[in-house]
């Protein structure tokens, strides 16, 4: 007992300090916050889960949306998942976007910014939004310079926001590319009826984990404006 108590006294104090620091480091490693892959994603609406690798929007990624009938609806539906879960959404350079349609798709309007920059300040505005807003919807009408696009992609990775672009004027391509391959309206006849919903077939592709082709058929928009399963 006495020997054990006197033991610390024969160890050099500096050495004891080092020893304690080392043990502290071990503990620090064990309790350090760990970023799980699941936490690095943003949720999407259940109807869209099949279209995305991992069933969610990976933070820091670029999603491209294309197609003649339904690209804007699809972009709004993609943003609706994170928005209804509490994220902020920014719409850049599309002041004519239908706000009622955005709300019907499931976007929380109290967490929506509509930013309309001049083409010369477009890249700066998007860069400012990335990191402060989780989902940024863009549809550049001008050609985005390759340098700007590269810088924005790097900033997205670092800050963990998701960019969804429609219209295809984005040089470096997208991590996930979704195309509306086929669309057909339901409900409108010749001189009667009204637009009720649109049956669409969406094909997905992209880079890395998203390279495996995916496909889904759904109603976009469904009768309430939100996407619905085509079943």
């Amino acid at each position: 007992m006495a020997a054990a108590e006197s033991l610390p006294h024969i160890i050099d104090p500096a050495e004891a300090l080092d020893d304690r620091k080392a043990r502290l480091r071990l503990v620090a490693d064990r309790v350090a916050p760990m970023a799980l892959a699941r936490e690095r994603t943003l949720p999407v609406l259940p109807e869209l889960v099949d279209l995305l690798p991992g069933g969610a929007l990976r933070r820091g990624s670029v999603v491209g949306v294309n197609g003649m009938g339904g690209a804007t609806s699809l972009a709004l539906a993609l943003a609706a998942g994170p928005s209804s879960a509490g994220s902020w959404t920014a719409i850049v350079g599309q002041p004519e976007l239908g706000l009622v349609a955005a709300e019907e798709a499931g976007i929380a309007l109290e967490r929506l910014l509509v930013v309309s920059p001049e083409p010369s300040s477009w890249a700066g505005a998007v860069a400012a939004l990335v990191g402060s807003v989780d989902v940024v919807l863009v549809a550049p009408r001008h050609r985005v310079a390759a340098g700007d696009a590269r810088r924005l992609t790097a900033r997205l990775r670092e800050r963990g926001s998701v960019m969804i672009h429609t219209g295809g004027r984005w040089g470096p391509g997208a991590d996930v590319q979704l195309d509306v391959a086929h669309s057909e309206w339901v409900g409108l006849g010749i001189g009667h009826g009204m637009l009720r919903s649109r049956r669409v077939t969406i094909n997905g592709g992209g880079r890395g984990a998203a390279a495996r082709p995916r496909s889904a058929r759904l109603l976009l928009p469904g009768p309430t404006g939100a996407p619905a399963s085509a079943g």
Binding site: L109, L113, V114, V115, S116, P117, L129, V133, D134
Partner: peptide
Amino acid sequence: ETEIDERAARVAARLQGQLGADAVMVP
């Protein structure tokens, strides 16, 4: 009031300074 609201409000104020009052709108 949440942290993410604070961040979004800040970026809105900043962009408004840079781009003009009518360039950053909310519904």
